[in-house]
């Protein structure tokens, strides 16, 4: 993986970014703990006592990780741009899928998502695509809502169908 001719973001950049991200998370935890009270009350430690030290440990560990990341630069790529494009081609549609779920319901969103994935990423024929894209949500409906009585999010279409 190291000696590819392709270009892409350096591993080092991502390592540094990750360490910073985790460090910020640690700071948020510390801030939250301070609000909850970090001292040792009359009845043992208060709500923020442990989270405070956990946050502190995160910050310290991230600082060390950051230092390490800064130091060793082996010129490795994190991933080639082509690979990242592949990854993003799943992340972005999934984000749209997840984001649209509260509005159009799980079933419709799933149909569109499966169809999209199979047709454009998988390159399947329309017939196969539609069979799976419709079949799966219908099966899900039967198993979850009918048998196990687990209500899943629904949208206007289900309301209109009266399901």
């Amino acid at each position: 993986m190291t000696e590819r001719s392709e270009r892409g973001p350096a591993h080092k950049t991502l390592e540094i970014g990750m360490a910073l991200l985790i460090g910020v998370f640690g700071l948020v935890v510390i801030f939250g703990s301070l609000k909850a009270g970090i001292n040792w009350g009359a009845e043992g430690p208060r709500a923020g006592f442990f989270p405070f030290y956990i946050g502190a440990a995160i910050v310290v560990a991230s600082a060390i990780n950051l230092w390490h990341a800064q130091r060793d630069d082996d010129g490795r790529l994190f991933a080639a741009w082509g690979q990242l494009r592949q990854v993003m081609s799943v992340v972005v549609p999934t984000a749209i899928y997840v984001g649209s779920m509260p509005f159009i319901g799980l079933y419709v969103a799933s149909m569109v998502f499966i169809a999209w994935f199979m047709r454009w990423l998988g390159g399947y024929r329309w017939l196969t695509t539609i069979a799976v894209a419709v079949g799966m949500p219908v099966l899900t409906y039967l198993v979850f809502e009918r048998w196990f009585l687990v209500p899943l999010p629904k949208g206007p279409l289900e309301d209109w169908l009266g399901l």
Binding site: V90, V98, I114, F117, Y124, M136, L152
Partner: peptide, 14 residues
């Protein structure tokens, strides 16, 4: 994978 991946993603969401 082209079929199973979207199905897994949907099941994960559920």
């Amino acid at each position: 994978f082209g079929i199973i991946a979207p199905l897994i993603l949907v099941l994960c969401a559920i």
